[in-house]
């Protein structure tokens, strides 16, 4: 996936640079009417969630859209797919009231599908580099899995989530319709994990998003 995203980024970057050379040097850019993002999402679990899966996971993908409603103020959406996973060797799980204990290598993972409405403010929306802050409000569909050999023990949990984010759009030329996105967010959810002795509440994570942007004038 890294290779694919690299190829796409390089291709768009090159075409953007070629386009930018066609424009007069005095051009200062434009404020797009809307823009759409596709980004690769790396998740770092924190708090209780980190006890469930400690690994940072690059298995994530995000699609977003923003529509400018007034100056730098935009509203939109984000839909993502994310997975965090970690293998643990020789852990023991017990069910005390039944006298059962299981010891095995196991894999814990959480698969997430977040969907959020977003409000964002771009400080200088017409510039080559357009920093922004945003707040996402929505929900997640999460599956928490504990896999031991061919057994897959899992729970499905829906939640409410909040995601404050800082980031920037970097246009490939003042008049290019394409750009890069880099963003960092903190996500707080009401989601919880309760599988065997593992109990985690209010799952939290940090996400690093790197992607491309298509702007509509």
């Amino acid at each position: 996936m890294k290779k694919i995203l690299s190829v796409i980024t390089v291709f768009v970057l090159m075409t953007g640079l070629v386009q930018s050379q066609d424009k007069p040097a005095s051009s200062m850019g434009y404020t797009p009417k809307s823009y759409y993002t596709i980004s690769w999402n790396t998740t770092f679990t924190i708090g209780d969630f980190n006890k469930w899966v400690g690994n940072a996971s690059p298995a994530g993908f995000d699609i977003g859209g923003r529509y400018f409603i007034h100056n730098g103020l935009a509203v939109g959406f984000n839909i993502s797919w994310q997975r965090v996973s970690e293998n643990y060797s020789q852990q023991t799980y017990t069910i005390p009231d039944k006298g059962i204990a299981i010891n095995a290598e196991n894999c814990r993972f959480t698969w997430m599908v977040p969907f959020q409405a977003v409000i964002a403010y771009h400080f200088i929306p017409d510039k080559l580099i357009s920093p922004y802050i945003s707040l996402g409000i929505g929900g997640d569909y999460m599956e928490h899995h504990l896999m031991i050999q061919e057994y897959d023990i899992y729970k499905t949990v829906w939640d409410f989530s909040l995601t404050p984010e800082i980031g920037a759009l970097v246009r490939f030329g003042s008049y290019s319709n394409w750009g890069a996105l880099i963003a960092f967010n903190y996500k707080w959810t009401t989601n919880q994990i309760a599988l065997y002795e593992t109990t985690s509440k209010n799952l939290q994570m940090l996400n690093l998003k790197v992607g491309i942007v298509m702007m509509i004038r």
């Binding site: 997975r83 204990a101 095995a104 290598e105 050999q149």
Partner: peptide, 27 residues
């Protein structure tokens, strides 16, 4: 392509769990 590669629910490494010995006891 990115969707196909990154959005599979199950991690690939779970296959090797089958090669591990699991100990299950009940008293």
């Amino acid at each position: 392509m990115a969707f196909t590669l990154s959005c599979t629910k199950y991690p690939a490494e779970t296959d090797r769990l089958l090669e591990d010995l699991a100990v299950i006891t009940q008293y």
